[in-house]
Structure formats: C-alpha cells, structure tokens
Write a protein that binds this DNA or RNA. Sequence first.
DNA 1: TCTTATTGTCTCAGTTTGTGACAATAGTAG
DNA 2: CTACTATTGTCACAAACTGAGACAATAAGA
Lengths: 230, 230
Amino acid sequence: MPQTAYLPHIAYDSVIFGFSEGDLKILIMEYHNTGLFALPGGFVQLQENLNDAVLRGLNERTGLTDIYLEQFYTFGDFSRFDPEVMRTLLEANGIIPDEEYRWMLDRFISVAYYALINYEDVTPKPDALSDSCEWYPVNELPQLILDHQHIVEKAIQTLRDNLDRKLVGGNLLPRKFTMNELQNVYEAILGTKLRRTTFQRKMLAADVLTRHEKHFSGKAHMAPYLYSFK
Amino acid sequence: MPQTAYLPHIAYDSVIFGFSEGDLKILIMEYHNTGLFALPGGFVQLQENLNDAVLRGLNERTGLTDIYLEQFYTFGDFSRFDPEVMRTLLEANGIIPDEEYRWMLDRFISVAYYALINYEDVTPKPDALSDSCEWYPVNELPQLILDHQHIVEKAIQTLRDNLDRKLVGGNLLPRKFTMNELQNVYEAILGTKLRRTTFQRKMLAADVLTRHEKHFSGKAHMAPYLYSFK
DNA sequence: TCTTATTGTCTCAGTTTGTGACAATAGTAG
DNA sequence: CTACTATTGTCACAAACTGAGACAATAAGA
C-alpha cells in the first residue's frame, strides 16, 4: 500500500444503494480475519476536494465514474471514537500502528454520503484490508462497526425525503426501464406498496420521462413501454 | 485567551437567522482592523461533540441555550484553503502565528449549521477577535471571506426546502404571535407573497397551533388572535 | 380460438387548493 | 353616537389533484 498523506481526524463513509430482486441493497465491506463489517469509507488527501475523495473511493469499489452522489450528514459525536476497532482491524492485517499509522487511531469526524447506482453495472471490489465487498438488503444487514447502522438509517431516511423532490429513483435502474420496474424501486425505498394507476399518472405528469419502444418479456400479456429519464 | 486544544482541520460555521422589520436577517462578525466580515464559527474541542461545539459557540454569541439548530452541509473543497485570510486576521490582533496558533493556518473542512432564533431575545456579542457581531438582512450582506457567501445561500435554500416539512417558522418569532406575523416570516424566507386565506387555512389545518386571546394593537380594525406552537 | 396476466387509459367520487366575497370587529373622525 | 376604514375570521365556489376501480387492448400459451 503506497503511503499517501491524508487529512487527520476526517473520514467519509458512503452508503451505496443498488436495487435487485425487488430489494434495496447496500454495499458492505468485511475486514480480514475480524468478522467486522463496515460501510465503505476512506480519507481525504491533503490537497483533494472532499467530494473528489468520495468519488475516488466509489470508483475503487465499483469501477464507476459517473455516480449520483449526495452528502447527507456529518457525524461528529465524541462517542464515535473507539480506537480499539481500528486497532483490531490493522493488527488483523499484520500492521502495527506505529508512526506511520497512528493517525488512524485518532478521533474521526465522518462525512456521510449516499450513492445511487445501477446494480447491473457493478462488480464490487474489496480493498486491501477487506475480504469482501458485497450487497446486502437493507433489511438484512450484519452487525456493523461503530455508528454505521445509524448512518445507514439516516441515509435511508434522507433518500425517502428526497425521493419525490429530486426524482432520483431512476439512478438505481438501467437507462431504459418499464414503469413497473420504476414503481418497484419506489416501493423498495419507501417500504410501502403504491397504487399502480396513481403512480403511473404522477410519473407521466411530472414530464421527466421519455417513452421508447415496447419491451417484450416473453410473458403472456400486453407488453409495457420502456422509459428513460429525460 | 486561555488556550484549549482543538481538533485540527475541522471548523464549523453557523448561519444564525432572525426576523425583524419584515426582513430575514443573519448575524455577521466584523474582525478588528481588517474590514473582513465572516459568519460566526469556531472549532471543536478534542473531547467535545461536534453539535455541542456549535451550541457552545451560539451561546457565546447570543446568550441563548435552547436553540433550534440544524446541520445542513459540510464544505470540503480544497479551494476553501486560504491561509492569508486567517493570517491577516490573527496579525491584526497582534498574534504571530507561531507554535500555538499555526494550526489555524492549515486547511479546514467546515461543517455548516443554521439556527433560528427570536430576534428580540438576543443582544449579539462579538468575540475576542471581532469588533462587532450584527444583524444584516440576507439581501444586504457585506462581502464575506472565503466561501461564506455560498454557505449563506445554501442555508437559505435548505431552510426553504424544510419550511413546510418541519414547520420551523415559529422559531423566528416570540412564543405568541399573530397569523399575519407568521405569514410575514414565511414570506421573508420564501421571498414570495402568499395568499392570506390559503396560508391561514393551511396553518390551522396542520393542527400545530394553539389559539390564545386576541391581541389589541391599537389599530382601527378587528383584532387578530394570538397563536403559539403546540 | 380461447384463456390468462398485465398494461394503458378512463371515469367518478372525494379531497385539497386558488380565489374572491362577506360579515365582524376596533379604532378614528365627525 | 354614528359613520368610516382597515384588517380579520370564515365561508363559498370553482379548479386542480388524488384514490380507487373499471375496462378494453394486448402477448403468449393451451
């Protein structure tokens, strides 16, 4: 691992949302030999924009470059400070927190972001310290380190609040999708069922969709149109 | 100034809103002998919660303890970094940035909050480095240091977005107020005129107000009721 | 050709919102 | 004491929006 200089005391965590099999999912890392699960995160280089640091981390995990990303809260309670977690994590990788790594055991304030990506576009990649980086349904998360569970909850809450205002649901789907697929995304995010006709009417009235050709699924019924966001 | 240990690289800025004479106003500090204007801000002590640090700063400026406070964004661009501003500010106060103060010239990431307070409750107090801490209408701000103008714009935008969702307008008024005063607050925040009857109906239907006695202003017309938030 | 599941659209009722009307004040001016 | 004015609380009506169901139009299999 080439050593780069980072801003001390400042970290970011990202809640990366995807949608598959009817479930809203997020990416979770599992660290080597520790049984510890955490959100993907990282640090900010000395001359790097905060937002760029997050995009860099997202690119390392997903390979994607154009990502819908939103900052939603900065967690700064002193109670977040638990050096034993980071020490465990480093030592499990054979790293003794000496001069070069001691800064990692300090207190951190973490700026949290959520990202919306198309599940199909991604093969998640673990980093040097982790065994895996995998999708978990938001309702079936493993126990997470520190306050990461709380960060996820706040991310979902913010996503729900922003869903109608920003019409971001489409970022979780391929470019072209059916109205039913879009509705499934909304239902997974909100955690409630929606009325088909009302949803369709609202989406069409919002004037944000372009209608394309029909999509023949091979199923024995009327074929739905494909749509994309304008 | 007793020296306390602070987290390096981390600051906060607060946009403190008040309402008077029909205008939405915020508190701005002017630093000694520099002509520099800035938002009230500060640093986080080593073992202090971020939110508590902000409340501490707010209390120092306003004397208030129960304050409606909301975190809205963390500004982390490298371009914020301009050590000359801080150097000017320290030197104008006869402080040479030596060992004890050099950390203040480093790059900072700033967590921004907005607060809503009752204008009448407050006599703003400058700090050790500033001549004044005064109310300015948001449309008549002086030129501010760094990206503080941008921070203010984002604060207003967030306040507008949250206005209906969180019904926070009342925090800018005394405990008891008339419907017309509340409407004036909403109009100042949104920057638009609202219809009297629609506004009244919406507020009453929201079921968040308690109606009290009438308020006799001495004017020659029907006296309005006073309301308070439940 | 018949059957089934799903889709796009329409209808109708119920609710909410925009807009103006209007009577009820609380003072002031005669 | 009576007119007059400005503002308030409330109502009325139309327009817009939303919930809920109805229904014809498919696409494929039996």
